[in-house]
Computed example of a mutant assay.
Amino acid sequence: MLVRYFAAARAAAGTEAETLDLDRPTTRRDVETLLARAHPHPGPGQPPLAQVLARSSYLLDGIACPDPDTPIPHEAVLDVLPPFSGG
C-alpha cells in the first residue's frame, strides 16, 4: 500500500510517501502503529509522528476514513492529513 504524508505529517515522517508491504489483513489503526514505529525520531523541531497521526484525518483511496478499524486493502492509497491552520 502507498502512504502519502502532507504538511506536519510529512515533516514528522521525513518523507512525502512510502510503500508498506502488508502481509496480513490490516486496519487503519494497524497502519498507524506501523508508521509510528517506523518513524520514532522526528526531525529537529518536529513532533513525533505518533502525535501527528493521532490528530490527523485520513483519506483511503480518496474517501474519508474516520474509523480506525477500517480494513485497508493491500493496493490502497492512504493519505495522512494533519490539521491545517487557516482553512
Rank of each mutant, 00 (worst) to 15 (best):
L53H: 04
T33D: 07
G87Q: 06
A8T: 15
A17C: 05
P68L: 03
Q46M: 14
P83C: 10
H74E: 09
D30Y: 00
Q51S: 14
G43T: 04
Q51Y: 07
H74M: 04
A64E: 10
T33V: 13
S56L: 08
P82M: 11
R29Q: 02
E18Y: 01
P48N: 03
E18Q: 12
L20H: 02
T27S: 08
R55L: 14
V3L: 13
F84N: 03
V3I: 15
S57R: 15
G87H: 10
D61C: 06
P71W: 09
D69N: 14
P83S: 10
L20G: 01
R24K: 11
V52Y: 06
G62I: 11
L53R: 01
L49P: 11
V77L: 12
L22Y: 02
R55T: 14
T33R: 12
P25A: 06
D23T: 15
R37L: 14
P25D: 06
A13T: 02
A38Q: 13
L81W: 12
R29Y: 00
D67F: 11
P83Y: 09
P48G: 04
H41C: 08
L81S: 10
L2V: 08
P82L: 13
L49D: 02
P40Q: 02
H39S: 02
V80G: 06
H39M: 05
R28V: 14
A36V: 02
R29P: 00
A8P: 15
D67W: 15
G14P: 01
P73L: 07
L59F: 06
R37M: 09
C65L: 11
R24M: 04
A50I: 06
P71H: 12
P42D: 04
P48S: 03
R37W: 06
S57I: 08
D79T: 10
A13C: 03
E75D: 15
A50S: 13
E16Q: 08
T70V: 15
L2F: 08
R10A: 09
V3R: 00
V80Q: 08
H39C: 02
M1Q: 06
D23C: 06
L60W: 04
E18P: 10
L34S: 00
D21R: 13
L81V: 13
E16N: 05
Y5Q: 04
H74L: 06
R28C: 04
D67Y: 13
L2Y: 05
H41Y: 07
M1L: 12
V80Y: 07
T19C: 04
Q46R: 14
G87R: 11
P48A: 12
Q51I: 08
L35M: 01
D30W: 00
P83I: 11
H41T: 15
P68T: 09
G87L: 11
L81C: 10
A9S: 08
